[in-house]
Design a protein around this nucleic acid. Structure first.
Lengths: 333, 333
DNA sequence: TTGTACGCGTTATCAG
DNA sequence: CTGATAACGCGTACAA
């Protein structure tokens, strides 16, 4: 910038005015400055500019568990979209559900002067937020509750969605609905289980431990669980509490040539294409991301914090055919 | 940092040494400094630190067309992984295939002092790279060729993959293989068409305009194209030149209750779960991302540029059943 | 081992 | 409308 000023024969401040698009500047000088910028190949250093108090990096940070997971990349995209509309850049990082890595990313992003943070708390919790050194900018927790007072939190209605799915399976005549999911140490899974149990209770039923599995970490494990349930004849319907469980159930059905009524939690690309098409509890993932970005940007623009710190987004039950009794193939035709 | 120095009763520089983990520092002073940092809630400003010549932001930028697309989010994840191993952060942005947006993002990221750039050139080309003002750090083009001399480029073997797929369909007895794809103004699509035509030529055949469609922009459009091909009986096999075309073909088959031998380009989540399972030409997307990050990081660490600026990654033909003649359902059992 | 003085690129103040 | 000067937070040369 100094070089440009010298080249154009003006003072530093005039160049600063020029590059900031200020109006009160002599057209002649402006022309000289523009020319100097061109010949010198000058580019503004935004990092240096944001050093000034009151100025900011216009960058927000996003920490999710895995960017390759379509669920999170859709969220990231929605955040990025709104961020860009407001002139913000997004720095994204994956924690792999590890507390240490998550904590390191928080420190790094904060050190890098992000102005806001959108975070999916990792399963393996690390340091408490109260122990983060230094001032913490606006934080929004996504998908799972966090432990920072004053932060906004956005959750899906996991219990409500699970309840709706289970109710639907019961309405189809099922009496022994299996719950195929992951560990209930995960908050979302605990909520889904709660909704499942509530639905059973409404029908005068209680969860049967033989029908509840928390071992479906992968789709293959889920497939084994479902195959076992079918072999023993214990279950007459399956609520798959996550994506991998849904895929596992489909695999098991496919293997055995038979199937049980099925509803899964979380939509997936293949769901509508399978035979029968898989019914799911769907979250509005894009809306979650959009809302998270909106909350951060609102607080950055000085808007007062909302009183409702916790927002629970509704889920939608999408019935495609797999919830009904039927054969392994052709159930939807 | 000044405050910390005052609180600890030492000079600025000593605090600087402390936070940089330098060894030559009196343990007593170190203790005082650590305490001061704790009580003051001091945090290092990495952006300010990188202002120093020789210092850097340790951030790289990634511009893709759409982060919500699993193809690109997988790439982003692979890049992020290697970047983090080297202490780099990744700032990701989507161009939506628009040249103007892409150009603005390049300027913004460079202004933000990223040290390297990994870019998927947008379909609707914008400004030439030679017109980017100011110095340009290492750039790697991904998925499509770019126009910056000296940049590395990573492409998939689109022609080879398309050729292999077409050859396989011909080997299955097809004589009238349809090409269902997008506009050949897109470089990848042009390459895939080339491979398709080459395979035909090897069998003494020539592309038949009636069998070649460039209108499959969405899966519904692709479905219409395939439905039309089946109705007219012109085609006896389908090469779906992208993901959406594959899905469209599956939809069309499902609608009509009949099907043609099919191979698609690019793998997709549902492919193995469909009936019959869809055969595809698969790209090693993770390797593309990893390699891109490696090239950027290599040049950042001062390694000499490789002589082979253009790397073409092999594709893999995954046969799952849909390439064979068969009925609409059950072709893989 | 510690401290002083300066510069990195930018913007704000305030006087001209 | 313009410019001289200080300051943002940090690291480095060099002196103590």
């Amino acid at each position: 910038m100094n070089d440009v000023a010298r080249e154009a024969g003006v003072a530093l401040k005039t160049v600063s005015r020029f590059v900031n698009g200020e109006r009160n500047i002599d057209p002649v000088l402006a022309g000289r400055i523009g020319a100097a910028i061109g010949t010198l190949g000058y580019r503004r250093n935004l990092a240096a500019a944001s050093l000034r108090p009151g100025r900011s990096s216009r960058t927000i940070g996003l920490i999710i568990s895995d960017l390759a997971n379509p669920y999170y990349s859709t969220i990231a995209r929605a955040i990025e979209l709104l961020a860009r509309e407001h002139g913000f850049l997004l720095t994204t990082a994956s924690s792999d559900e590890e507390g240490d890595r998550h904590d390191a990313l928080v420190d790094r992003l904060l050190g890098q002067q992000v102005e806001g943070l959108i975070v999916v708390p990792p399963r393996q919790a690390g340091r408490a937020w109260s122990q983060v050194p230094g001032p913490v900018p606006p934080v929004v927790f996504l998908d799972r509750p966090g432990d920072l007072a004053g932060a906004d939190t956005i959750l899906a209605d996991n219990a409500g969605g699970a309840r709706a799915a289970t109710v639907e399976l019961l309405a189809q005549g099922a009496r022994s609905v299996a719950f195929v999911g992951d560990s209930r140490a995960i908050s979302t899974m605990a909520e889904r289980y709660r909704g499942y149990a509530d639905a059973l209770a409404e029908h005068g039923l209680a969860p049967d431990p033989a029908l509840v599995s928390a071992a479906a970490h992968s789709k293959d494990q889920a497939a084994a669980v479902v195959a076992e349930l079918m072999a023993s004849g214990a279950a007459d319907a399956v609520f798959a509490a996550n994506n991998r469980a849904s895929l596992g159930a489909v695999l098991a059905f496919r293997e055995s040539g038979r199937r049980l009524p099925l509803i899964g939690f979380d939509d997936f690309e293949a769901a509508a294409l399978l035979t029968p098409a898989v019914s799911v509890v769907s979250q509005d993932v894009t809306e979650m991301g959009r809302l998270a970005a909106e909350l951060v940007l609102d607080r950055l623009s000085g808007a007062p914090a909302r009183s409702d710190r916790l927002q629970i987004l509704p889920t939608r039950l999408i019935l495609r055919g797999s919830e009904r009794v039927g054969h392994a193939a052709g159930g939807d035709r």
